[in-house]
Nucleic acid binder design. Structure first.
Lengths: 174, 174
DNA sequence: GAGCCCATGTAATAAGTTACATGATTGT
DNA sequence: ACAATCATGTAACTTATTACATGGGCTC
C-alpha cells in the first residue's frame, strides 16, 4: 500500500495526469520510489473508485487530470502519522557482494569498482536534479531538499566504502 | 529471482535445512536480504525440482538438510558475474519524509527523530553481530565483514543526516 | 506433562514487472 | 508526411506477505 500513498502525496503537491505523475516518479522521486506505467494507471483507477482522488478535467488524447480529495488528504496524513517500523533491507547489490567469495578476487574487485562507478553516476544525477529544480521555500521544497541531501550523502558513503573495500579485498587475497 | 540466489549462496557456504536458513536470514543476512518462512520453503522446493540443490540427509521432525549441487554453484557464479544495473531505490521511509510537509512541523521533527533512533538501533544490532560472529579468514568472512561495514557506515550516515535534518526543519519553519 | 523450540507446508491475497495493444496531437 | 511525444489501458506472470494448519522432539 505504498504506491497508493506515493500517488496521493504527489497529487497533494499538485494535480496531474497519469502521464505527468510518471514523469515525476522518474525525476524528483527517482531517489525515493519508482512505479511502472502499468502499475500507476491501475492504482489511479483504484484510488478514484475509492474516492481518494478525482478527475478534475479531461484533455486531448483521453488525458484525465486527477486531484486529491479531502478524504485522500486525510488518508495521506493518517499514513504519515501512523506508527511505522523500518522495513527489512533488501539490496540485491549487497547480496551479490556478500557472496563474492564464490568468484575470483579479480572479478570481485572489478564488481566493487563498478559499484563505485554507479555511485558516482547517482551522485551526478542528483547534482543535476538539484540544479534543475527551482527550489522555492514551500514545504515540499524543504522536504524535497532533505531527501535529495540524503541521496547525496548516501552516494558519497557508497563511494568511500567501495574504495575501502577494493583495498580490503586486495590485502586479503592478493 | 533474487531469493533464489540468496538461498543458493547460503547453501554454498554451508548446507542446512529451511529452518536453518531462516535463522541465517534473520541474523547474518538481516542487513542484506530477508525472506518469510513461507516464501523460503516454496523456493527450496522449486530449487530442488530444478536440480540446483538436493536433500543430503533427513533428520527428526521431517527435517530435510539441503546442499547446493554442482549445477547450483554454476548458476550462482553466473549470476554473480552477469551484468547488472542498480535497481531503482524504493524506500518507504524516504517517501514519508518527502511528504512530511503535509503534517505539522512538530510532527515532522518527531518523525525524523524516530528515524535517528532506529538508525542507532540498527548500528547497535550490527555491532552485536560483529562481536558474536567468529570471523575466520575464509572468503565468506572477508565479504561478510565488507557488508557489515557497509551497514555500519550506512547507519552512521543516517544518524548524521537526521540530526542535520531536524535542525533544518527547525530553521525553515520554527 | 508443560512449554519451548524445531520443522514443514498450503491458501489467499497483494504488489510489482513485462509485454502487448492502441491511438491522438504537436512540431518541423 | 513524419517523428516524437503524449496518453491510456489490459493480460499474464512473478514475487512477496499474511494467515492458517499441523505436529514432533527436547528439557525440566
Amino acid at each position: 500500500m505504498t504506491l497508493r500513498h506515493a500517488v496521493l502525496g504527489l497529487l497533494a503537491e499538485a494535480p496531474g495526469s497519469g502521464y505527468d505523475l510518471l514523469k515525476r516518479f522518474e525525476t524528483a522521486m527517482a531517489n525515493v520510489w519508482s512505479a511502472t506505467q502499468s502499475q500507476l494507471y491501475g492504482e489511479l483507477g483504484k484510488l478514484e473508485k475509492s474516492g481518494l482522488i478525482e478527475v478534475v478535467s479531461e484533455g486531448p488524447r483521453g488525458r484525465k487530470e486527477y486531484a486529491i480529495t479531502g478524504e485522500g488528504r486525510a488518508e495521506l496524513r493518517a499514513w504519515l502519522l501512523e506508527p511505522w517500523a523500518p522495513p527489512s533491507p533488501r539490496s540485491e547489490t549487497l547480496l551479490r557482494i556478500y557472496f563474492l567469495g564464490e568468484v575470483a578476487p579479480v572479478q570481485a574487485r572489478e564488481y566493487v569498482r563498478r559499484y563505485a562507478e554507479s555511485a558516482d553516476e547517482l551522485a551526478g544525477h542528483l547534482a543535476s536534479i538539484d540544479e534543475s529544480v527551482d527550489w522555492d521555500d514551500s514545504d515540499s521544497a524543504v522536504f524535497g531538499r532533505l531527501v535529495l541531501e540524503w541521496g547525496k550523502r548516501h552516494a558519497a558513503m557508497e563511494r568511500e566504502w567501495a574504495d575501502w573495500a577494493v583495498e580490503r579485498i586486495r590485502t586479503a587475497r592478493g
